[in-house]
Write a protein that binds this DNA or RNA. Structure first.
Length: 119
DNA sequence: ATTCTCACA
DNA sequence: TGTGAGTA
């Protein structure tokens, strides 16, 4: 299938699909015309990428993680222990960020409080 | 009609 | 990442 069909089937824009290729996440064949050709496997590949992206990983991190993951009955799971640790570290950093955001929110709430607009 | 690359009021 | 341009 070409990029248009893959885009429809995955719900991912053609723009994003080309970007994933540029980032080494997808390696479609090329027709002599230059058109990209994807296989059924790419449909699953795009879903894995989206999942990892949704988990907050960068394309570079996804490239490192992907080869260390296995698709087992509908879910993507870490295959190497090192990856589990890296993912856990990533989660910890996110929790730190959440903590900072909560603090920022508290400061904003204090600033807003029962402020009465004057001008 | 589709896809491709490149560039950004 | 979207969008538009100019092609093949």
């Amino acid at each position: 299938m070409r990029i248009g069909e893959l885009a429809r089937r995955t719900g991912v824009s053609e723009r994003a699909l080309r970007y994933y290729e540029e980032q080494g996440l997808l390696r479609p064949e090329r027709l002599p015309s230059g058109y990209r050709v994807y296989t059924e496997l790419d449909v699953a590949a795009v879903r894995r990428v989206r999942l990892l992206l949704a988990a907050g990983l960068s394309t570079a991190q996804i490239n490192e993680a992907l080869p260390c993951m296995v698709d087992e009955d509908e879910l993507l799971q870490p295959k190497c222990s090192g990856l589990v640790d890296a993912l856990a570290a990533h989660r910890d950093r996110i929790e730190e960020a959440i903590g900072e955001l909560e603090s920022t929110r508290a400061n904003l709430n204090a600033l807003i409080g029962r402020a009465r607009p004057v001008g």
